[in-house]
Design a protein around this nucleic acid. Structure first.
Lengths: 127, 127
DNA sequence: GTGGATGCAAAGGATTTGCACCATT
DNA sequence: AATGGTGCAAATCCTTTGCATCCAC
């Protein structure tokens, strides 16, 4: 049976994610981890992030055409995304919308995606 | 001032989109358009789709790691996405969730993304 | 005629993967 | 010792772009 090993690289990646409240992308994590571990490779950072995500330790925020962002926060929350600068803000969950009354026959919903897109204060001013 | 030209290529791309109720990707549109216009290029299909999208004539459904899908339907609706086979179903809009009470200061929301992800009947059976 | 649009092919860029070597268990 | 993980670099894959030519206006 497959055992997940506790490597120095994975510990370092997790430590970086824990250390920030932003929602960094893999390149930023890579750059930060390199300060403590100069030989780590970008591929390993991606693999570590994947592993942490599938263990459910970190959350992945994926937007088409944008780099994936990683979020260590565990509390239930939604994301507010600025489409100008790409900043992602956390907001407490409001209500969970009810499921549509007429889902396709037999469809089982496992995740409701609710995001708010728009422009942050700064990006509004720049136009 | 910039004039948007009505080219045969754009008409053909729009015609293909109108002809289906699925949510095709660019490659499928390309393949279909080629039947009527064998010399059209994939680049032109992308440019036409972009143009139609920014005119608001078609809707783009983007999911990270997946090909973009294009949707001609104009009625207000939400999408139900099967994470097994990638099928996208339309459902009538339920209620619009209220905005969070504590948005970041000055943030202006322009779009609320509400999607239901899960497994369609067929993909459940295959596991 | 003029400038936006096209076709072709090459470039782009985030992420993934093959492989030989390394290190945790 | 076994086998999962790492580093490196090459490969992927959808999408975008540069450029010479074309054609809608």
């Amino acid at each position: 049976m497959k055992v997940v090993r506790q490597t120095r690289q994975r510990q370092a990646v997790l430590e970086v994610l824990r250390s920030t409240r932003t929602h960094p992308d893999a390149a930023w994590v890579f750059q930060e981890v390199r300060r403590a571990m100069p030989n780590i490779s970008l591929g390993t950072v991606y693999r570590s992030l994947d592993a942490l995500a599938s263990e459910g330790v970190v959350m992945v925020i994926e937007r088409a055409g944008e780099r994936a962002r990683y979020d260590y926060r565990h509390e239930d929350h939604h994301h507010v995304v600025c489409r100008g600068c790409g900043a992602i803000f956390d907001v407490p969950p409001s209500l969970t919308p009810p499921l549509p009354s007429d889902l396709p026959s037999g469809f089982r919903v496992t995740e409701v995606v609710l995001e708010y897109h728009g422009l942050c204060e700064k990006c509004q001013q720049e136009h």
